[in-house]
Design a protein around this nucleic acid. Structure first.
Lengths: 227, 227
DNA sequence: ACAGCCATGTAAGTCGTTACATGATTGC
DNA sequence: GCAATCATGTAACGACTTACATGGCTGT
């Protein structure tokens, strides 16, 4: 149920069209909550039906219509209620860490590639987020400016500080991932060295002889290079 | 597509029933990839249809049947292929950080409660994961023991080390969250002190007078205590 | 015989992904 | 006039959630 509240928070700043929403969404919210436009347009209709936003339709060219959404009092109430509610943890789903648990099924080379890609990815994200944070700190984004101009002065600091803090948390996470990936690369080196010292050549825990019976008759794994 | 591979990795250790799978899943995999049994049972059927596992059905009492699943050579191949494949990043969806971005809509008290809950949660998780890691390091879990007994000696270290490393990453994340939440609490104190110094009493950015027109006619926010 | 956990499912509905589809505007 | 991008959608499908349903086994 977070998509709707993210949208409410955006329209709360100023009335916007679906397209504006998706753009602002991509450039801010999507760092912490992903959603494509194909989800956003229908969700806006739902919000309208629920009376949390109101839409003003204008024609666009011959046949098109453009809807500008504004938040309603109910919508604002819903937004505040959401913020005040205890937040349930979403289910964990981390494909990379899952796979990292089973790297012994692949080659050392593969593990290295994977950790390196992880490293590159989070290094890159980190830079993006840092840029975003300093933009917020300087109050340079369109939405922040608008938001502040409609908020009493004594709350300006809080508005900015909460956002900065949230995104800093993201940066911390990214840095932790980078460090973890580096340690992963070091680990692969260590394992490979230890393995090479034994004289074997390519490592892989896969390719078992199959025991299709249900009994745990010690299936035997053998080494084999992974193609 | 990670659920199926997680299941493959589990049945690769030894033949198991659906129930065993869900139990082992809960006690290991679910730290990084959540799935309830209602997802696991059907997925096993799919894996069977795809020829990646084979099932041996036994009767259980009058009418029940118990299926014991074993991995097939195709299944093992699929598992290895998955490990070797580049790993796509899943979409981000972090409800808490999203909400933390908008804490100015709630009270200071609320922000504190939320950060504190976050802190407690990850502190707790952290302890669980640490226990799990040291269990793996000591090679004391049933699955690890079984796994090692069917793996050539020179790979034992890798099997253990990759898992330990993966879960250590999880612990790092949890610790980062704890630190972040603590900084969050400190931030709330600072903001509240600054706010209190201005003489106002309860903070909230919500409750706008509604401007339902599409034009951005400077809607006016006023302070108000949040009920 | 009853409680409590073991064990195996099904079903409805929501959420999210991916791909397709189409017309409008703007700048060159 | 054409390309790019602005702008707004729909549709099919798969993943996931939540709740329901049922029967077996074990100890008291």
């Amino acid at each position: 149920m977070s998509l709707r509240h993210a949208l409410l928070a955006l329209v709360a700043v100023q009335p916007m069209t679906g397209y504006d929403l998706t753009k602002h969404f991509e450039r801010s919210v999507s760092y912490v909550w992903h959603a494509p436009h194909s989800q956003i347009y229908p969700e806006l209709r739902k919000l309208e039906k629920a009376g949390l936003v109101s839409a003003r339709a204008e024609t666009r060219g011959e046949s098109g219509t453009k809807r500008t959404y504004s938040i309603t009092p109910d919508g604002l109430e819903e937004l505040v209620a959401w913020v005040e509610q205890p937040t349930g943890r979403g289910p964990v789903r981390d494909a990379f860490r899952l796979k990292a648990t089973y790297f012994e099924y692949g080659s050392f080379e593969n593990a290295r590639r994977q950790f390196q890609a992880h490293l590159d990815y989070f290094g890159e994200e980190c830079r993006k987020w840092e840029a975003h944070v300093s933009q917020i700190e300087r109050r340079e984004t369109v939405l922040i400016e608008k938001r502040l101009s409609a908020t009493p002065d004594e709350l300006h600091e809080a508005v900015v500080a909460y956002k900065v803090h949230a995104y800093r948390g993201l940066i911390d996470q990214a840095r932790a991932e980078v460090r973890w990936a580096r340690r992963g690369l070091a680990l692969v080196d260590t394992l490979e060295a230890a393995h090479g010292a034994d004289g074997a050549e390519a490592p892989s825990a896969g390719r078992a002889g199959t025991r299709s019976g249900p009994e745990a008759g010690s299936g035997r794994l053998r080494e084999g290079s992974v193609p």
